[in-house]
Design a protein around this nucleic acid. Structure first.
Lengths: 206, 206
DNA sequence: TAGCGTTGGTGTATGAATGACACCAACACG
DNA sequence: CGTGTTGGTGTCATTCATACACCAACGCTA
């Protein structure tokens, strides 16, 4: 009766994105995003993290506030939406009731108010891609330039020229070349890079 | 006892900006921004407009959601902050208890949580200046290029080259030259421009 | 062990956009 | 009619963005 997900004046909702060939978001089987009602004394961001943790067990992901929506008349007064980003490797989700869905697929069953959240989050991602280091949130600590380019192409919905992309990344001075390479498949190994320490991985405010 | 400004689980707060030689925001004498508690059935944006209207009588200004902050323990659960923009001419505020203040002046008496709102709003303004038509929100329907440049310089906190600025504005194709000029002071009259109709004056989502 | 398939990795040339810069025009006022 | 003040204009140099093609290194297989 006192289900923390259905009562309370303020709720949070979280759209968790990851990339595996395509951009995907985490969707509960009932066609909703993870949500939680704000508990007494609880901070909004903590509430959002709790919503994610309760459904998936995931912790310590990139999380940023997206927008606050009006609630429904029979529900919360306001819904504070967040979006989260994480590399696929960190998401060994094998829980009943959650799965990955395609945000661009209008056939995906999803409540209207949550569909808007996913769509706005995609727009925000594409917009921030150029001026904030969000692409790295989809990658492991060390990554290849090929992987990085794939993230840019998927979020930006366009193919990029390899040489121009690499030059841009080098010019940004955010990357550090490591001494290691990654072997994967029957082709030339790829150099591994990581984010420069002095550059915060998460751009604070919007 | 039932003061709508002190109870209720969700509040809105509004930082209203205008430009008169410098950027200014509207501040209540008690060192707070206009706020309102979300009424039953009320939409968040309507609540923010009501907060502004109740203190100033101002209606129909540009208003955009900024960020949602945690409430304080003895107050609301969440504070949804908005920022508003309006040309100075439309603000004949002669109400007791409200005045204009300098957002960059740390000596301005302002509650800490509201100070953060003003600061974040200034950052958002500067950031959006380049890609969204917010500068026009500070101007009347028809304006001179000199006035427009002044807005850009004040929000961007930098002086701009007159010729380069005008070229950029022309290239953006957002402006329409009118046949009229404005005479003001003892110097050459300035051509008046207006925003192109097909371009929405307010960029919708963020 | 040689060839193939696949991804990793590199430089140059061209057009576009940006930034720096100085002078005349039109008015009001005294 | 002279002065002060803001309005208005073009060019050149530099930087940035775009388009584009080939060899390298590996695993696999024949």
């Amino acid at each position: 009766m006192n289900d923390t997900n259905t009562i309370g004046p303020v709720h949070t909702a979280v759209a968790l994105f990851t990339i595996r060939e395509r951009l995907e978001f985490l969707r509960l089987d009932e066609g909703r995003l993870p949500t939680a009602a704000l508990a007494p004394q609880e901070a909004l961001e903590a509430c959002a993290r709790r919503a994610l943790w309760a459904t998936t067990g995931i912790e310590d992901v990139f999380l940023e506030q997206l927008y606050t929506f009006d609630g429904r008349q029979d529900g919360p007064r306001a819904i504070v939406a967040y979006y989260a980003l994480a590399p696929r490797e960190r998401l060994p989700i094998r829980r009943p009731g959650v799965s990955w869905a395609d945000p661009t697929d209008s056939a995906t069953s999803l409540a209207d108010d949550h569909r808007i959240i996913v769509q706005r989050a995609c727009e925000r991602l594409a917009g921030k891609l150029e001026y904030a280091p969000i692409a790295y949130q989809f990658l492991a600590e060390r990554f290849t330039l090929g992987e990085l380019q794939a993230v840019y192409e998927i979020i930006g919905c366009q193919t990029l020229d390899k040489r121009n992309f690499r030059r841009r990344m080098r010019a940004s001075a955010r990357l550090v070349e490591t001494r290691d390479v990654r072997r994967k498949g029957c082709h030339r190994p790829a150099r591994l890079y990581r984010l420069r320490d002095t550059q915060p991985a998460i751009a604070g405010a919007l």
